[in-house]
Design a protein around this nucleic acid. Structure first.
Length: 218
DNA sequence: ACATTAATTGTGT
DNA sequence: ACACAATTAATGT
């Protein structure tokens, strides 16, 4: 099945951004079967109901993962995938041969290595570091989701908002976020007024600086 | 440059 | 959450 040669460019990217993948043989396989994909900021990558045929390894940029209620035009921001991350959802989806439960869009211009799902399963048996890589990413994501559930349950919208801003800031690697209060409210599914008021408090605390269509982190 | 309009943000209840 | 006021950016003349 391995007819092509490993792509040296991909090989180098794997070594640089995924230090947990240590086996050289595995690195070479990824470089052989993986495709380099590029998405522009705002582009839809994966949507509900689409079958996953690729598992992404994020090289740079950032991907926003959201859950959405089609009925009432509401969505809930789940998390960002940054360089060195992979999508845990895509693992479970492809293993179970299920359609996507989530929607992902490029938050920033993003490049990733797409790996056809057939190898994902195969490598679990074959490579120790692949297995732990997958498990670690699951663990990390679970912890994060538990934390956001905590925040939602205990009505800690301030924390959630601050978290969101910080994550977004690192996602686009900039202290200045260009967005509206309404968009944030949509992501956290809260009211726009609530967001505005909390943001203003943050400003008074000198945590941020506010402007129209922009928020600067301090 | 000025006026008009639309979009975003602030506030009181 | 709602209604409305105030502010700022975008657009046309």
């Amino acid at each position: 099945m391995i007819t092509e040669k490993p792509d040296p460019q991909i090989l180098q990217l794997v070594q640089k951004h995924f230090p947990d993948i240590v086996e050289l043989k595995l690195q070479n396989e990824i470089a052989t079967v993986g495709h380099l994909l590029h998405f522009k900021a705002g582009e839809r990558i994966m949507d509900y109901g689409s079958y996953i045929k690729l598992v992404p390894l994020v090289i740079n940029g950032s991907i926003k993962v959201v859950r959405e209620d089609e009925e009432r035009d509401k969505e809930l921001f789940l998390y960002f995938l940054n360089a060195g991350d992979t999508c845990s959802m895509s693992f479970s989806c492809c293993m179970m041969d299920k359609v996507s439960d989530i929607r992902t869009t490029a938050e920033d211009d993003t490049t990733l290595i797409g790996i056809p799902i057939k190898y994902v399963d195969e490598w679990m048996m074959k490579y120790q570091s692949w297995k732990s890589f997958v498990m670690l990413s699951y663990d990390h994501r679970l912890q994060e989701l538990i934390q956001t559930i905590d925040h939602i349950v205990f009505h800690k919208l301030d924390d959630r908002l601050l978290d969101y801003l910080q994550k977004k800031s690192t996602a686009i690697s900039s202290k200045v976020i260009h967005t509206t209060h309404q968009d944030i409210a949509y992501d956290l599914n809260a009211s726009r007024e609530g967001i505005s008021r909390i943001l203003k408090q943050f400003e008074k605390m000198n945590k941020i600086k506010l402007g129209r269509n922009k928020i600067e982190l301090m």
